[in-house]
């Protein structure tokens, strides 16, 4: 464990933060630009994982395990979210024969 911590700490913190930011931004851009609901979903997961990464890294750098506990929470939550979200997408597909989110524009004005 000690060794693993050392390996992680051998890379500067800024690099992790930069990586997370890049991952997160890719996720945001994915959510904003794609119309396919499943791709959006995956982009959301990417954002979540960017955060997870950051949490884990900070946990290591600060010697505080609570960050890693949070990662588990987020992963559990993401799993639940995927379950519900995919179910919704399946229902959307059955009703509209499409998973394009722009078809779902009834709720306006």
């Amino acid at each position: 464990m000690e060794k693993f911590f050392n390996i992680v700490q051998s890379v500067p913190l800024n690099h992790y933060i930069l990586l997370s930011c890049i991952l997160f931004s890719i996720g945001v851009i994915g959510v904003l630009t794609r119309r396919n609901a499943i791709v959006i979903f995956m982009s959301v997961e990417l954002m979540l994982n960017a955060v997870n990464l950051l949490l884990a890294v900070f946990s290591v750098f600060r010697n505080d395990p609570s960050g890693q506990v949070f990662v588990f929470f987020v992963m559990a939550l993401a799993a639940a979210e995927v379950a519900v979200g995919l179910a919704i997408i399946v229902m959307v597909y059955r009703n509209t024969s499409s998973i394009d989110i722009n078809v779902l524009n009834k709720l306006k004005w």
């Binding site: 119309r35 722009n102 009834k106 306006k108 004005w109």
Partner: peptide, 17 residues
């Protein structure tokens, strides 16, 4: 003001971001 509620989810997300 209600015209802002276009029903386009992408637009909503964009505004949210």
């Amino acid at each position: 003001l209600r015209l802002l509620q276009s029903g386009n989810v992408g637009f909503y997300i964009f505004i949210m971001v």
